[in-house]
C-alpha cells in the first residue's frame, strides 16, 4: 500500500482516459491552488488519443499514482478493460478504445502501469483517507451517488478504519458524508465531462478545516477542441468525439443507475 504521509491540502483526480491536455491543465490548476500533493486514482487510458502522452505526463510530473482497472489491463496486456460493463453495446465501444489504447501504449509505459499500487493512504489534517480506484475492496466496483447508501459507507469506513474514502471509476464526481464527518468522495474523471452538457472536467481538493476534511470539486477548462481534432485524426469513433464536444455521454451508458442516466441526454 502506498503511504503518502500527512498534508493540509491535496488534489485528487481520476480517469485521464488519454486526455493528456486535461491532465496538464488539471495538474497546473492544482499547483496554482497550493496542493501539497497531487494524486492520480487510476485509469490513464481509454477513450482519447495518443495514450503515450498521458502516461508520459503522469510519469514526468511530481504526482503519485494508484492503479485503475484500465492500467491493470493495459499493463498486463489483457483482452479487455475490466470496466465491468454488462451490455453488448457498451462492450462494443469499450473494446474499441481499449484495443486502441493497448496497441498505442509503449512497452515501457505498460510496465510502469503494471507496477502501480492498487491502494493508498494519506492524512489530511490528521484524518485518514483511503485512496482507491473503484472501491477499497474491488478495483472495478462502481460507487455512484444514487447507489451508495449511508449504511454502506459506514460499513466501508469501518472495514478500512478510515475517515474518508476517495475513489473514481464512475466518471461522475459526488460526495456523501455521514453525520460524524466520515464519508466517500468520488473525485470523478478529468478525461471527459460528467455527462452534464458542459465541456469542463472535474477534480477534487481536500483541505484540513475546523470540522475535519473539507472537500471542494474544482472545474477545469482545457483545449477540448484540440483534443476532439486529435481524436478524429486518430480515427476514434465519432461517438467519442461528440462527448468531448457536447458534454453528453454517448456510449457506456447502460452501467449508469436510473437516476444518473435520467440527467443525461442519451
Amino acid at each position: 500500500m502506498l503511504d503518502l504521509g500527512s498534508f493540509d491540502k491535496v488534489a485528487l483526480f481520476g480517469g485521464v482516459y488519454n486526455n493528456w491536455l486535461a491532465l496538464e491543465a488539471t495538474v497546473a490548476d492544482a499547483r496554482r491552488r497550493g496542493a501539497q500533493a497531487v494524486v492520480f486514482l487510476g485509469d490513464a487510458g481509454g477513450f482519447g488519443p495518443h495514450p503515450n502522452r498521458s502516461v508520459e505526463g503522469l510519469r514526468s510530473l511530481p504526482i503519485h499514482a494508484i492503479q485503475g482497472n484500465y492500467d491493470d489491463s493495459v499493463g498486463q496486456g489483457l483482452e479487455d478493460c475490466q470496466c465491468g460493463y454488462t451490455d453488448p453495446r457498451d462492450n462494443h465501444f469499450a473494446q474499441i478504445s481499449y484495443d486502441y489504447t493497448l496497441a498505442n501504449t509503449s512497452a515501457e509505459h505498460r510496465e510502469w502501469l503494471r507496477g502501480l499500487p492498487v491502494r493508498g493512504e494519506l492524512k489530511v489534517g490528521g484524518k485518514r483517507v483511503r485512496l482507491c480506484h473503484g472501491s477499497p475492496r474491488r478495483v472495478n466496483e462502481f460507487l455512484w451517488e444514487s447507489t451508495t447508501p449511508a449504511g454502506f459507507i459506514d460499513h466501508l469506513c469501518r472495514e478500512e478504519d478510515v475517515d474518508l474514502i476517495a475513489c473514481t471509476h464512475t466518471g461522475i464526481h459526488w460526495e456523501r458524508r455521514l453525520a460524524d464527518g466520515r464519508g466517500v468522495v468520488n473525485v470523478g474523471a478529468i478525461g471527459r465531462p460528467p455527462n452534464d452538457g458542459k465541456r469542463t472536467v472535474w477534480y477534487s481538493l481536500l483541505e484540513a478545516g475546523p470540522n475535519g476534511i473539507e472537500n471542494r470539486f474544482v472545474a477545469v477548462d482545457y483545449d477540448w477542441e484540440r483534443l476532439a481534432r486529435e481524436m478524429t485524426g486518430e480515427g476514434l469513433p465519432p461517438e467519442f468525439v461528440e462527448t468531448i464536444r457536447t458534454g453528453w455521454w454517448t456510449t457506456c451508458l447502460e452501467i449508469l443507475p436510473g437516476r444518473e442516466r435520467a440527467r443525461g441526454h442519451h
Binding site: S146, T147, P149, P257, R259
Partner: peptide
Amino acid sequence: RFRDAPYNLEV
C-alpha cells in the same frame, strides 16, 4: 420516488 428518494429507484 424516482426523483426525490434518498437513493436510486430502478423499475
